[in-house]
Design a protein around this nucleic acid. Structure first.
Length: 587
RNA sequence: GCCCCGAUAGCUCAGCUGGAUAGAGCGUUUGCCUCCUAAGCGAAAGGUCGCAGGUUCGACUCCUGCUCGGGGCACCA
């Protein structure tokens, strides 16, 4: 429409060059910033000032004059420096309202984009319970998955389980040491071991099941080991890494590979099932838990390395095999096979990402901690070297969540065992508040999570504002029944033209933006945009609620207003479902 | 040294990929319940958008250089 008007305007110039330039422009039509300007606005006139060498307001007038008659637009006007504002006919909004109720929970869903996206998120090492930092990943990842699904992508959420490698050795060793302590063996716990109480609990179960099967004298255990790290008078001695590795080796010698595996699996199974329960209770459900062991067992690492070698991107140096990452934009080359013949974590990583691609995913979306930013360049380099487009990997980095109790920073280290778990947080503030708090901020923003504040059950907590809007609507319908009225939906639909107050118009207009917000927020992987929208929608509703009484004598007006409330309720529910918070009927 | 993220109201943060008078919550001042839940609504005060240049009809937004904060730069995972 605007394009037609522009063409006519362009034709009014005798100079061919100028009119061609005008035709080439693609001006934006966007939502007006404020409803007092209209519903949509275009900056076309301002873009033309230079080419046409006229004042923007004059250009705007010419464009409007050239505007074709149509059934959508009520009126158009010029404002400010030269914006062309359009006001839609009210029927357009009434139709949108009917869309909401017809499509119900599907309202806002976009047509299939025919794209498969694999979203990997949380993927915390299974060496202990999830803490508040993981909670942010879980809430964000789950919301992004929901957003992408709604926006028409085929989404597969995945948790990568690091169940191979050194951390697992340390976990098994830590468990064994706790088991020994329960068996009356005197010892000091390794500095680099996992010190949390949950390990003691696992050790207790192990002891119940296997009794003294894995008990040995402390002489046998601790003789000839390197010194553990110690700080005496401010001077550090020993090496915690060497010590724990030696201790792990000793553990294997004594209890055997099989025994070691029993201990490891006991710890792993216990921790993993705890993590699964925790996430499940939090409403975060991964479609798949991908075990790192599969990369070895199914030959996926070998497959990836073969591909790299086949493309001539691997060389040997100092007895190790290196990938020429520098040829693909990384700042240094990366070891894939160590001098001792063991493949590196990086090798697993690219093998995993290659496998994700081979499963037919168009886009690999990784949600990682900001401390992982160094991996992006090298994994992309790996993908490219294996013949996959580097843009197929998109990484969203999550800035740290710092926990406060009032003004006091809470220390969080998995090793030390002094941390607040996700489960504790959920118990304190509730799932809804936790889910909302986590995604309220952009992922690129540091999150200060104040427990004291989040615990407060008053209006400082934004979750109540949103839920209250929903509960209020539910209450209206209850009151309606108490007053012996019956809601007539078709009467409501037919009389929507009666809902014409200023606040109703703003509410309806704002509500009709929902599909656009879904699209925008999915494109930016930004659930906080949706949260912001839901908050504003709630505000528009509360404002309407205060100015227009819904349950009135007039049947047609009452039904029409109820119709509007139904629609608002539906949009709130749809939005809440994406964020993962409940829609309570009363508060 | 190099790389990533941030800096916007007293506090915590948005700002829709360059547009109109830079917004919201909390806090402060204040008005509104004989009427569907006051966990609400209305009004007011509060700003050199970290600093300095540049591009543009137009910059919080893009570019360059600084300053300050957070994080990262392994034959660890």
């Amino acid at each position: 429409m605007l394009a037609q008007a522009l063409e006519q305007y362009a034709a009014s110039f005798t100079d061919e060059d100028v009119s061609q330039q005008i035709k080439d422009l693609s001006p934006h039509i966007e939502r007006a910033r404020d409803t007092k300007f209209g519903d949509f606005a275009s900056n076309a006139a301002m873009m033309l000032t230079k080419i046409a060498k006229q004042k923007p307001r004059d250009i705007a007038e010419s464009i409007i004059a050239a505007f074709p008659e149509n059934e959508l637009i009520q009126e158009s006007s010029i404002a400010g420096p030269g914006f062309i504002n359009f006001r839609l006919k009210p029927e357009i909004f009434q139709q949108e309202l009917q869309q909401v109720l017809n499509q119900a929970s599907q309202y806002g869903c976009q047509a299939s984009k025919g794209q498969k996206v694999l979203v990997e998120y949380v993927s915390a090492n299974p060496t202990g319970p999830l803490h508040v930092g993981h909670g942010r990943h879980a809430a964000y990842g789950a919301s992004v998955c929901n957003l992408l699904k709604t926006a028409g992508y085929q989404v597969h959420g995945e948790y990568y389980v690091n169940d191979a490698g050194r951390q697992m050795q340390i976990l098994a060793t830590s468990t064994w040491i706790r088991y020994l302590a329960l068996s009356g063996i005197e010892l000091t716990f390794p500095v680099n071991g996992y010190q949390g109480d949950y390990i003691i609990e696992i050790a207790r179960l192990l002891k119940e099941k296997h009794s003294d099967k894995f008990v040995f004298d402390s002489d046998k255990i601790f003789s000839d080991l390197p010194d553990d790290e110690k700080i005496v008078g401010g001077v550090k001695t020993g090496d915690k890494d060497k010590y724990i590795d030696a201790l792990a080796l000793r553990t294997k010698e004594l209890i055997g590979e099989d025994g070691f595996q029993i201990v490891l699996d006991a710890a792993l199974d216990s921790i993993l099932s705890d993590i699964k329960d925790d996430l499940h209770e939090f409403g975060v459900v991964h479609d798949e838990w991908f075990s790192e062991r599969r990369l070895v067992d199914d030959g996926l690492i070998k497959h990836a390395l073969d591909k790299l070698e086949a493309n001539g991107t691997v060389y040997e140096k100092d007895g190790a095999k290196w990938f020429k990452a520098t040829d693909f934009g990384d700042d240094k080359d990366r070891v894939v096979v160590r001098e001792n013949g063991v493949t590196t974590y990086f090798a697993s990583d690219i093998a995993y990402h290659l496998y994700k691609r081979e499963r037919g995913n168009h886009l690999l979306l990784d949600i990682l901690g900001s401390d992982h930013h160094g991996y992006i360049a090298r994994v992309k380099a790996g993908l490219e070297a294996m013949g996959e487009p580097p843009e197929s990997l998109e990484v969203r980095l999550m800035q740290f969540a710092v926990l406060y109790r009032g003004k006091e920073k809470v220390a969080m280290t998995t090793r030390g065992g002094d941390f607040v778990s996700l489960r504790e947080l959920r118990n304190e503030v509730g799932n809804d508040a936790a889910r909302l708090f986590y995604v309220m901020r952009s992922n690129e923003q540091h999150l200060d999570f104040d427990l004291e504040l989040a615990k407060k059950r008053d209006n400082e907590n934004p979750v109540y504002y949103l839920q209250y809007a929903h509960a209020r609507i539910c209450r209206v319908f209850k009151t309606l029944t108490e007053k012996d009225y019956v809601y007539d939906e078709s009467a409501g639909a037919e009389n929507l033209h009666l809902v014409d107050s200023d606040s109703a118009y703003k509410l309806i207009s704002f509500m009709s933006r929902y599909p656009e917000i879904i699209e925008l927020s999915a494109a930016n992987r930004a659930p906080h945009t949706l949260v912001q929208y839901l908050r504003d929608l709630s505000a528009e509703f509360h404002s309407f609620y205060n100015s227009d009484k819904v349950i009135v004598e007039n049947d047609n007006l009452r039904n029409a207003r109820l119709y509007l409330l139904k629609a608002v309720q539906q949009v709130l529910q749809n939005g809440f479902a994406i964020i993962g918070i409940s829609a309570p009927e009363q508060m």
